[in-house]
Design a protein around this nucleic acid. Structure first.
Length: 277
DNA sequence: TTCCAGGGATATA
DNA sequence: TATATCCATGGA
């Protein structure tokens, strides 16, 4: 993908490889706002403003190097797309979500966010995370950073309950405590299978949330996070019927290999946007 | 009012 | 190992 940098601005040439709406509305990230044709995304303690300029996308940010990595601008999607288009369901989904990309998010932020996401809807997830940042995030002049581990560790389960996390409050408090006590978030030496088991030791992280973390924070493509939408996707894939989501995920990753996570994102976005039930 | 949401933990067999 | 039930909460 072609882009250029000038001062605090990145210009991406050609919206077909980078569609702001598709990226933000694909359920991988929760700290963003839309106002008319302008978009604001906050990740960690960095803020990015995105908008379209004819055929280009403009990103204005207080940290260009971070934004290039976060939006994964150096990744080429041509091979992924052409390979996945061999499957007829994906051909439709990719045509629909041509400018979708998977972001490279911070592990701790992704862990906390996706524990909150479980059995929850996206507007409410966003609200809980915003309140979390309002209370514990560093003030950065007009916006709040995502809280650091140290800040998260200063509060107890009652705090997480007070921001509306519901029964996930206990998961959050426990997981923060374990990580703060030395649970390492570097999984670079682990296979994806081992890394999934490792992450699932944390409270509130089951197979689906673990796969989201592996995909959105650790760039592991060989996972297929199975939520309620993906069960419908499985149903339409002409595979043997089962109610076991672990088996569903296994069969789907056997088919899509290292591009499973990308396949899942195109399909998830396609099904949810078109309300395919 | 009931149903649903990017599910996980726990008890039970 | 596989299934059933419970869990907060707000929007549809």
């Amino acid at each position: 993908m072609q882009y250029s940098v000038c001062n605090n601005q990145i210009r991406i040439y050609g919206v077909s490889q980078f569609n702001i709406n598709q990226i933000l509305d694909s359920g991988q990230v929760f700290r963003f706002k839309k106002y008319k044709d302008k978009y604001t995304v906050i990740a960690g303690n960095i803020i990015c403003y995105l908008n379209y300029d004819n055929e280009d996308v403009i990103i204005e940010t207080n940290n260009v190097d971070f934004a290039i990595k976060f939006f994964d601008l150096d990744k080429d999607y041509h091979e992924i797309k052409s390979k996945l288009r061999e499957h007829k369901l994906l051909d439709k989904a990719i045509t629909f979500g041509e400018g979708l990309r998977i972001l490279k998010q911070n592990p701790l932020e992704t862990i906390i966010s996706f524990i909150i996401s479980s059995n929850n809807n996206i507007p409410r997830i966003k609200g809980i995370i915003e309140r979390l940042c309002d209370y514990l995030g560093e003030y950065c002049g007009g916006y709040r950073a995502f809280p650091t581990l140290e800040a998260l560790a200063t509060v107890d389960v009652e705090f997480y309950r007070s921001i509306g996390a519901g029964y996930r409050a206990e998961y959050l408090a426990k997981t923060v405590e374990v990580i703060n006590n030395g649970f390492k978030l570097d999984i670079s030496t682990l296979s994806t299978e081992d890394a999934r088991r490792y992450l699932m030791q944390l409270s509130g992280i089951g197979s689906k949330v673990a796969d989201c973390i592996l995909l959105f924070a650790y760039q592991r493509g060989d996972v297929f996070p199975m939520d309620t939408w993906c069960k419908r996707i499985y149903r339409d894939m002409e595979l043997p019927p089962t109610t076991n989501i672990q088996i569903m995920a296994k069969r789907l990753t056997d088919i899509f290999g290292n591009f499973s996570g990308y396949a899942q994102q195109y399909l998830y976005y396609y099904y949810r946007e078109n309300k395919i039930t």
